[in-house]
Write a protein that binds this DNA or RNA. Structure first.
Lengths: 222, 222
DNA sequence: AATCCATTTACGGATTCCCGTAAAGATATA
DNA sequence: TATATCTTTACGGGAATCCGTAAATGGATT
């Protein structure tokens, strides 16, 4: 079994259970960080001490706090960690279940497993840990499998997210056109933006911009 | 200490920790339900068996499932339970931290305490249980205290929520006007709706309808 | 009943969105 | 280079919003 595991999780009510689960799997060294920044420092120090972690189990969202933090999300944390320890195994343990996000985590961040917090997630987490330890293909839970299958999700890209976020900020199409020109994002003609928004409206079955933002907010895209 | 406590919480990773906390407080009977409907049935049966629960600790949001459930949220659950056992003590244990919601729970639902899931919430939960057991005023955590103090929050009423939700559904002002007329909601003139939306836009510093929905979605109002 | 006051509704012009079509520009192929 | 094709941009008309002002309505008071 893994020897040294780090848990990045802000909620004490969850981290305590995860620690317990790891103990039951006979993990020797179990450490825990409530902030992404702390988690990163622990990983860094462990490398320096020539006793690196074998596995990171990380949440995605961390509650903002009085504390100033460099890393605000689990996604950023994992990306930073992979830069200094590319071979570390990573499991994301989060309540998020949006296909788009899960798919992106496997594809762009290269996580080893995704376990969705739910009614029977501790068993799933333990299973995922076993499978990764044995270098086996992880079985995808129904949610994750669905996310990976859903091809259409791949067409929504950073550009669209950008556009939706600008809309959600209350900018007009002309505003966004200028903004995109400044940032060098193309296409940036207000007519093109309009067309792209129209595609998004068809895709998400939205009847107008307000509806579109409401839907994509619910999906966690913006 | 309380003798018989029910936990309504869908996430196993959290309920396990809460159970443990209650054990440390020497609660004799600790039961747990993963669905609101199950929680309600347990409360009902306990009354019938002349061994009612003393305390309910409930989450607010429950993940939707394959299962069909009558009660979808902790708020609904508590309201239903209060109808059949008005004297039961209730603690809401949730990650939500929106002032509007917390305030409404104290005012409209009559909960005894609100503990926000966070980095040190198990201690807070234990403290809240002690205080309620001793019939003392609960100390409000900074978040909750802020919610209770914020007077302005009270001006946003069901009417506004209704209006915002209709907007978020993609309806036009004329659509909403008809809808409100059907439901007997007044005012319902499209001009009045416009005026009300304008007030909301000023209040939330939104520059247009899209912005307004984005903001209120973030606040958890819709 | 008459007056006042607040709320609701109506109206009009400017801006923005919405939607289709056409022009301009870019890329690829022969 | 010429042509075809796709993407991006421009344009125009109709609908919805945005925002200010004025009229109508409904209570409360005298």
């Amino acid at each position: 079994m893994f020897n040294k595991v780090l848990i990045a999780e802000d909620l004490d009510s969850i981290s305590m259970t995860v620690v317990q689960a790891l103990e039951e799997l006979f993990v020797v060294e179990i450490h825990h960080a409530k902030y992404c920044d702390d988690a990163f420092l622990k990983i860094k120090k462990a490398i320096h001490d020539k006793a690196p972690y074998d596995l990171l189990i990380s949440d995605l969202s961390f509650k903002p706090d009085h504390r100033q933090n460099r890393l605000a999300s689990g996604e950023e944390l994992i990306q930073e960690i992979k830069k200094i320890q590319p071979d570390i195994k990573t499991i994301v343990f989060s309540i998020e279940d949006k296909s788009y996000r899960i798919k992106s985590l496997f594809q762009n961040v290269g996580i080893n497993a995704y376990v969705s917090k739910g009614r029977d997630s501790i068993q799933e987490l333990k299973k995922a840990i076993h499978l990764i330890y044995n270098n086996k293909e992880i079985e995808l839970s129904e949610e994750v499998a669905h996310a990976m299958r859903d091809k259409s999700l791949f067409e929504i890209e950073a550009y669209d997210i950008n556009l939706l976020k600008s809309l959600a900020k209350g900018l007009t199409l002309d505003d966004i056109s200028f903004e995109f020109k400044d940032s060098g994002i193309i296409p940036n003609g207000s007519s093109s933006l309009e067309k792209r928004i129209n595609k998004l409206k068809i895709y998400f079955k939205a009847s107008n911009n307000v509806h579109l933002i409401a839907i994509t907010k619910d999906l966690g895209l913006v």
